[in-house]
Design a protein around this nucleic acid. Structure first.
Length: 258
DNA sequence: ATGGCCATTTCAAATGGA
């Protein structure tokens, strides 16, 4: 089973990219972030025509997450959860589904704007709530995958220019500590399970010719519970759709589970 | 050179992203 995550930065604009990439990558389960559309505008029918069932937690203009599952894979309808239970939040950032017994979570972590800001405080509160909920989820699901736009570059090697970025949003010690706590819970960064090319990132600013200069950050991740990590045979970033016309500023990350 | 792009809302310029 191939599982993947992609921040599409508007599903309306990127719908054809998603359809093309599903066919290209043979992805079975695709987690999407930044749909930027309300539930009633989610293209369930169009995706169904391409062989995927879909679930979403959308909202107008901002945020919004979804999960696409190839026909034939077993999804327990009762397993669908939207948002972090107990964490009141109008922002739609989390959706979970159990697919073939694997707990799949699509998450769009808050950006945080800048350390010290109100949005940064919200990011840290959100991270605390996620961590508490994940602890429960991991107790009930041995095979769990947390996929999404984490808006955290966990290490300096995930940053094109660590000196310039030192202490900034997305790389600050507090954010990295939160990421490290996820690892402390037993979640494994599947990308780092395998040998990878140098300077591999998942996001590049639209400005400054950043993609051409490979001036990026690795902020999109697939974290796996111990028993799922043991099943994982590869994890890579696919930069292909970042080169297409009118691309998302993020590239998808895909992992193969044996 | 400390900006530059892009999507959205709504039709002009502000907001948010990362």
């Amino acid at each position: 089973m191939k599982i993947a995550t992609w921040n599409v930065n508007s599903l309306k604009v990127r719908q054809q990219h998603v359809i093309d990439w599903l066919e290209l990558s043979h992805t079975d389960v695709l987690c999407l972030q930044e749909l930027k559309l309300p539930d009633e505008k989610f293209p369930h029918e169009e995706l169904a025509q391409k062989g995927y069932r879909s679930w979403c937690a959308g909202q107008k203009t901002y945020n919004g997450v979804g999960i696409l599952v190839r026909d034939g894979l077993k999804v327990d309808e009762a397993s669908i959860v939207r948002n972090i239970p107990g964490f009141e939040d109008p922002q739609q950032r989390v959706i979970a589904a159990t697919v073939e017994g694997v707990r799949v979570i699509s998450a769009y972590f808050p950006n945080g704007q800048a350390p010290g800001s109100d949005k940064f405080a919200y990011k840290l509160r959100w991270l605390d709530a996620l961590e508490a909920w994940l602890a429960d989820e991991m107790r009930t699901h041995a095979e769990l995958a947390l996929l999404g736009d984490y808006n955290i570059a966990p290490e300096d090697r995930d940053v094109h220019d660590p000196k310039a970025w030192e202490g900034q949003n997305l790389v600050s010690p507090e954010e990295r500590a939160a990421f490290a706590r996820l690892a402390g819970m037993g979640l494994v960064d599947s990308f780092r399970q395998f040998e990878q090319p140098e300077k591999m990132y998942t996001w590049w600013d639209y400005r400054m010719l950043a993609f051409r200069r490979n001036a990026g950050l690795r902020i999109d991740h697939i974290l796996l519970s111990p028993s799922l990590s043991a099943r994982c045979t590869s994890c890579e970033v696919d930069k292909t759709p970042r080169k297409w016309d009118q691309p998302s500023d993020h590239a998808p990350v895909i992992a193969q589970l044996g």
